[in-house]
Amino acid sequence: MKNIAPVCISTYARIEHLKKTVKALSENKYASDTDLFVFSDGARPGDENKVGLVRGYLSKVTGFRSVNIIERESNNRVYNNRNGLSEILNKYGRCIFLEDDIVTAPGFIEYMNSALDKYENNPSVMSITGYCPPISIPSEYSHDVFALNRFCSWGFAIWKDRYDMIRYLDGGDFNSINIKKISEFGEDIYGMVRSDFLGDIDALDVKAMFFQYKESKATIYPRHSLVQNIGHDGSGIHCGITDRFKHEFLWDKIDDFVFPDDVMIDKGIIDSNFNFRRISLKEKFYNFYKGIFDFRFL
């Protein structure tokens, strides 16, 4: 590997989730060669004790080349995440980013850094993710990774030049959307993009998905998941309670990941991902009628 990218963790008040995230990361190959940056969001009224416990725990974390804790004075989830990400990218040019509910397999750091090296000069690749949804990979597909034009933030790596391309959507962006095309990598994408444009949410991953749709940029996924999102227990802001995205086991591969030179998007994997991301008929009707209202509003 050329350079081992720093790892950033964004956290707030979920100390038990954070402990699992940090412990798993510290057990990774190359953890002791990795600089860890943790961005601790400021407390909302009533959460001072929880945030204090998180910061007390962080002050004792070891197992990495360096541990750097950035404590925010005020609460702002978006600023905590994106300002932290921007600071590290401006300094290092690349980084790996986690939220405090992402548990990693021991090969995660090796995989992410190897992929960053492999695709750094490939303009068709926007990001790397450590997550693989529980979908069926065609038996004849032989690579350790695959590509989808769909950003995934559950443990991702990115370069500064790719990150700087992501921006807020404007009216021209929204009105130019081809719903059929943007839905090729998930029927749920259009509804998320609409919500982001209207200000109902402010989500980096959704903005990235729109950019990938516009520019045909790929995210590299592992063949088997190297991360588990443990935040679908009702403890997070945006995630409900579900086992839909859960894996019984994470990939135990820790080195010698094989990355193809050409980023090919496999039709069988697209279909499998599309079937997994299908939305209900109720959601489709909601999107249709909400789209009519949004059009009149715009």
Rank of each mutant, 00 (worst) to 15 (best):
V7M: 10
I9W: 09
K20E: 13
A24D: 05
L25T: 06
N28V: 11
Y30N: 15
T34Y: 02
V38W: 00
V54Q: 05
T62Q: 11
G63P: 04
V67S: 13
I70S: 12
E73C: 07
N76W: 01
R82A: 11
R82I: 11
E87R: 06
N90Q: 12
R94S: 12
C95D: 09
A105R: 05
P106G: 12
G107R: 00
N113C: 05
A115L: 04
A115T: 02
N121T: 06
N122V: 08
V125P: 05
S127L: 11
Y131E: 13
Y131N: 09
C132L: 03
D144L: 02
L148H: 04
C152F: 09
A157I: 08
K160E: 10
M192D: 14
D202T: 10
E215V: 02
A218T: 04
P222N: 04
H224G: 05
H224S: 11
N229P: 09
D233F: 04
G234D: 00
R244Y: 14
I254W: 05
F259T: 04
F259W: 03
D261G: 04
G268K: 06
I269D: 01
N275D: 11
K282D: 11
Y286H: 13
D294W: 05
F295H: 13
F295V: 12
F297N: 15
